[in-house]
Amino acid sequence: MEDCGLTWPEIQFAFGGSAAAGDADAMLPRLGLTGAQFINVANGCATGGSALLSGYWAIQSGEFDLGMVVGFDKHPRGAFNALPGELGLPDWYGETGMMLTTQFFAMKIRRYMQAFDISEKTLALVAEKAFANGARTDHAWRREPVDAETIAASRMINDPLTKFMFCSPAEGGVALVIASEKRARQMGRANVKILGAAMRTRPEGSFEVFAPSLSTTRGVAPTVLASQAAFEMAGVGPEDIDVAQLQDTESGAEIMHMAENGFCKDGDQERMIRDGQTRLDGTLPINTDGGCLACGEPIGASGLRQIYENVVQLRGIAEDRQVANVRLAYSQVYGAPGLSAVCILGR
């Protein structure tokens, strides 16, 4: 609010999400009981992206012209712990030790690595880059660089992914103010625009987390659908993007999301990452603030952290991690049980 020169009574609506830290609207007594519309959003790890999309459409509807999207979380130490009944699954699935997000990530990248010749070294290089960027980011949680050898040799969590290749749930919060173009101009803040925004759920045959079985007829991921819709809406293509924040719950996710979002062909990641193309000084810097690997994964906040980082890059105030001449910035967040939200910002 201070950044925008606003006070809470001026905010007409809010969408907010938190998975493990209570309802987001529990903030209201602290913010002020102004009577503003406040809707809680819950969409797994894509909660932040979903809150932003809800706010975007609220303004597009013409009903409002100034609102807030907010997300925060604080998770217990260790892996996320989902209960089968909450996702419509039988109890035995969790009781026998198969209901873990980490297993899914490991099995998805295992199959992908074999199909498209991605090496284990590339998994380590993704994490090395994340911690290098995190060391330059004041909102990051892990701010020490870690070299690829140490990452590869750290404790195995779910093969082929080691401890340093996984994000940690952690804690954090993000709040963004969004406005109609007209209102933003009046405020003198119409410098960053939402050019494309889309959320899609899993189509038939996609490989998703918490699946006791999969169809033998394979399909595409929800990220592919969300990405295509957002690019179409923005009227731009992957080749036009200057920086991208891609969901990196672990090293493998960033690699697969590069292709699912249209930034490369399956398998090209091996060469792109080895050549440093996704580093801050590369042709397509990815996760410029270190992503979930360096910033943690507070579910309600993560998708909005990506937007925050893109706004900072577009404004040119990212200091040590600033990418030169950012005009178009892309973000994608994935969540259980199989949904993806994409946002394209431009200045």
Partner: peptide
């Protein structure tokens, strides 16, 4: 076998019964 991993850390209870 379509894909696989090794569960290297104990899953949490609940739901895990092991």
């Amino acid at each position: 076998l379509w894909s696989f991993t090794i569960q290297r850390f104990p899953p949490k209870h609940p739901p895990y019964l092991g």
